[in-house]
Amino acid sequence: MLKINNLHASVEDKSILKGINLEVKAGEVHAIMGPNGSGKSTLASVIAGKEEYEVTDGNILLYGEDIEELAAEERAHKGVFLSFQYPVEIPGVSVTNFIKTAINANRKAKGLEDMPAKDMLKMIREKSELLEIDRKFLSRSLNQGFSGGEKKRNEIFQMAMLEPKLAILDETDSGLDIDALRIVANGVNKLKSKDNAVILITHYQRLLDYIKPDFVHVLYNGRIVKSGTAALAHELEEKGYDWIKEEVNA
């Protein structure tokens, strides 16, 4: 599904990603861990197509197609979803209105008519129940005055509504209490299928207790320096990142 080859990227001439190689197949869950400033969020933004980031070398293939020239919305239309670490506020635009606009924009890109209101309502009801979202929440302005937990739950709600092929969850666990974490993880697990894939970007092993990764990668200084199974995450939890840094720098 996703194949990243020797990806180099920089922002404002500062080189951040220095040769990433990663392959994600349908049905897989990959966790990307690493210390602060290692390039995790940059990788997520580059895949999603944020303009400030410039790919200086290598490429990203989605279903075999190089997506370098595609705008962020075109990547979204192809099934890329990013759950933001810091979701933005859009005052006056309700959660419902926003998701309706997004769904219809994606349908339009596929040459489909707007989703009938009845279907939309039904889907919103189903997915909000899945994430234990209160009906009143849906009429609030997007992310405005939301608690950290509400913001993340809203991100996963949008993911549930948009049914992406590739979901990248950027530190979705940060700022969540244990109940919210359980709800969010539960939502993600229910949405997982053999046709889609998930990349979890996280600092902590905690989330991986709930969403079981098939692979764990350690990102350090713009490169994936170690890959393994879920056991690697436990090792990191126990020993921290220093031993990896030492290994790399040795």
Binding site: A72, E73, L82, V88, I90, G92, F98, A102, L142
Partner: peptide, 29 residues
């Protein structure tokens, strides 16, 4: 903000539509 626009873009909403959405939200009252 560019962040607002990128957020909308990422959800599949193009820039023009994103601005319309933000402006309409701003003007809603």
């Amino acid at each position: 903000g560019e962040d607002q626009i990128f957020y909308c873009n990422q959800r599949g909403i193009d820039t023009e539509k994103a601005i319309a959405l933000i402006v309409n939200g701003f003007s809603k009252d």
